[in-house]
């Protein structure tokens, strides 16, 4: 039924489709809407013992703060619990991970796409197996050596580890992207006297940006969304946002300040919203490229 115009659907089927879609879209979006709304209320409203209407009307929020909305959760998370520090760390980690992954990945992916050798195939298969390794099993291998070498707990260590974990995926994705760039392009440059590296730098790099941007989005997401690696490899004062939220759960929930965690969760979601808003097309095409060519 691809591209069939909506008018051709019989009425009953059309109603069914729209109804199903409405249910799905509510299921997909409502949790976010609800949590963003609730993050501006006090705990007695968002986790109301009486009725969830309290969270909508904000009865307790009115009583405790005098307004229907309060920024107390955000103030507590960002200022009192220094969530801003975690946000800065996240910025450092994600930008570095993305930049380094792409640098290594474009070179590797290009070589894999242009080499017809047997070992290139085996490297791709090994990468596939590595891609399937649960991250936490690798983490349990890092800890002892990192303690011994005294490099545990620092941001650069975590950045390199995330780059390495991300590398199999980056290689696969850029490999299939470079396959779509015609071989003739760089080969004619080499006929004209360029070395392989010059051809890569002057002919391939200018045309590779669409693929690199798409791959970069996924590297960014990996660094941003990671919990297993960052929560185990960073010390308290170096934590990024996601493990910081994790540690909120341990300490804050008991003290009745769960709204700090709610505010932090909403804050960590905002960049992802913006990412989807601006890069929806690239994300969709990236997922598909992996599927069609991989």
């Amino acid at each position: 039924m691809a591209n069939s115009s909506p008018t051709r659907l019989p009425l009953g089927l059309r109603a069914l489709t729209l109804g199903f879609l409405a249910v799905w879209l509510i299921a997909a979006a409502f949790p976010f809407v609800w949590t963003v709304w609730g993050s501006f209320k006090v705990e007695a409203d968002f986790f109301s013992r009486q009725s969830f209407w309290n969270a909508i009307e904000g009865v307790r929020t009115q009583m405790q703060t005098g307004g229907a909305f309060t920024g107390a959760g955000y103030e507590g998370a960002w200022i009192k619990n220094e969530f801003w520090r975690a946000a800065v760390n996240t910025l450092i980690v994600t930008i570095s991970v993305t930049a380094i992954s792409l640098t290594l990945g474009t070179m590797g992916g290009y070589a894999l796409a242009r080499s017809g050798q047997r070992y290139a195939f085996w490297i791709l298969i090994a990468a596939l197996v590595f891609r399937a390794m649960p991250h936490i099993t690798l983490v349990s291998g890092y800890l002892l050596p990192f303690f011994q070498l005294n490099i545990w707990g620092y941001l650069p260590t975590t950045i390199i580890v995330l780059v390495a974990i991300n590398q199999p995926f980056t290689l696969w994705m850029l490999h299939s992207f470079f396959l779509s760039i015609p071989k003739d392009l760089d080969e004619s440059a080499m006929v004209d006297g360029c070395t392989r590296f010059q051809a890569f730098r002057m002919v391939i790099i200018p045309v590779m940006w669409p693929g690199v941007i798409t791959t970069g989005l996924f590297s960014f997401l990996l660094g941003y969304n990671d919990f297993a690696v960052t929560s185990m490899l960073l010390r308290q004062e170096n934590q990024t946002m996601i493990p910081k939220i994790g540690s909120f759960l341990g300490s804050i929930q008991n003290e009745g300040n769960i709204m700090f965690a709610v505010a932090a969760v909403v804050s960590a979601t905002v960049p992802l919203f913006l990412l989807v808003l601006f890069f929806q097309r690239q994300i969709v095409s990236g997922l598909t490229a992996g599927a069609v060519k991989g």
Partner: peptide
Amino acid sequence: AFMAPSILAMILFI
């Protein structure tokens, strides 16, 4: 030469 950094990273950390 092109693959070395990626391979090194994967050997060391995977």
